[in-house]
Structure formats: structure tokens, C-alpha cells
Amino acid sequence: MKLFKNNKTAPLLASPYIAWALIFILVPLAMVIYYGVTNASGSFTFDNIAMITEPGYLKALGRSVLLAFISTLVCFILAYPLGMILSSMKLARNTYLVTLFILPMWMNFLLRTLTWMTLLEGKGVINTVLEFMHLPPIHIINTSGAIVLGMVYNFLPFMILPIYNSLSRIDDNIINAARDLGADSLQTFLRITLPLSVPGIISGITMVFIPALTTFAISTMLGGSKILLIGNIIEQQFTQVYDWHLGSGLSIVLMIFILINMIIERLADTEGGVLG
């Protein structure tokens, strides 16, 4: 590998990005941590982080974790069979089909959420249709259910894509070999297909769980600003209350949750690797 004859060329080429990452990734993150562990007079404190134990905030965090968990689970349950069906189809046709399933991803995120506002409203499209069919109206707008629906609708493609990718990479010969050796479909699935698709499942879970955990737009639009998630609380600290210290402290809590999530996934990944 002698791309660079001079020893200084590579560091020189990398230096703009190193400077960029320092200024726009590391320094800002350090600022969040600095604000999180200081108070308005600049002295060190853990009060901002400890504020998460306030009942209102704790409730918002608990609700965020719960709703993100349910949404991730629903996305997984919907996406896995879909990934299996898509990966078992003939190649020429399924590029179009897969595109069809991830196409809503390219629609603006807020427009996708807005769609469900229109559908679920008290006098929205769904209730009008229900009324027309003489069925009782549903009232799920401004409930946690509507937020979960919005999360699933928005983030489903993020689950479909990695699962489909990992399933379609499985060599048919391995499956055939398992069949030849006498495994039935369930055994083949549990011992071959599922373990081999673990990397896809894990990246799908990350891509759904973290945005769902930290969203504030979906809960504002579909929860009618009555149901607050931890994202809403943090957003308010920066755009309405202007308490940057508290907002940063709560952001640190959020980052701790993201870290825990990553560690759990890493562990699951190595276990999957052992199984596979």
C-alpha cells in the first residue's frame, strides 16, 4: 500500500476533516456535557441530570422508552415476514418491490406524520368513512396509540431495509443443506435463517428505536401536545424555557440510554454470532 510516497501527505489530506470533526462533533458534544453538569453561575453540579427523577420528567422518559419499545416491536413483527417474502422472490422483480416498500422513506418526514393527523382526527377521513358505514367512530388522535402508529408508519422502512438485506444475503445452499440433513422448516428457520439475519435485525432495531425514543415532532403532531415524551421536554428547555443547563442535563440522560441500548445490541450481536 504505497498510495502516499511522502509520509505527510495522508495526514495533510485528513486534516480538514479532523479539524471539522473536532469543531462540529466533539466540541459541541463537550458543550452539552459542560452545560449539563454546571448551573447558571457556572459551578459544577449534578442537579440537572438528577432532575430526571422529577415525577413529570421521569414519567415522560418512561413513556418514551415504552412507546419506542412497542413501536420497535411492531415494526419488527411487520418487517420480518415481509423481508422473508421479499428475499424469497425472484431477483428481477423484487428490486422494484423493495423500492416500493422503502419509497415512503423519501417523502418528507413531517408530511408522513401529517398524513396520520388528517386520517385520525375527530372528524378526519377514517371517522368519516366509519360513519358512512354506520360504524362507531374511533378516538385515537392525541393518545399514545396514535403516537405509536405514527412511529411505526414513519420508521417501518428503516426496519424493512436492513432485515431484507441480511436475509437476501443468506446463501440458498446453506438452507438446502439444512433441509438435506433432515431439518424441518421450523428448525431451518430457528437455527439457520434467524441467526444469520441477526445483524440486520440489530441494525433495524437501532434505526427504529433511537429516533422513536428521541422524537418530539411525532408526539407534538399526533399526541396533541398533551402527551409529552422526553424529546418534547428537552425541546421545550431550548425553545421555550431557555434553560440550557437543564436541557443539556436531560440530553445526557438520553445519551446514557442510547449507550445502554448500544451495549445490549453489541452483546446480542456476539451471541448471535456464536449461534450462527
Binding site: P28, L29, V32, T206, I210, P211, L213, T214, T215, F216, G231, I234, E235, F238, G247, S248, S251, L254, M255, I258, M262
Partner: peptide, 9 residues
């Protein structure tokens, strides 16, 4: 990996 909201803030 980080949440967009933290990156934004």
C-alpha cells in the same frame, strides 16, 4: 449513533 435532537442541540 447519537440522537438527532442531541446533535441539533
Amino acid at each position: 449513533i447519537n440522537a438527532d435532537i442531541v446533535t441539533g442541540i
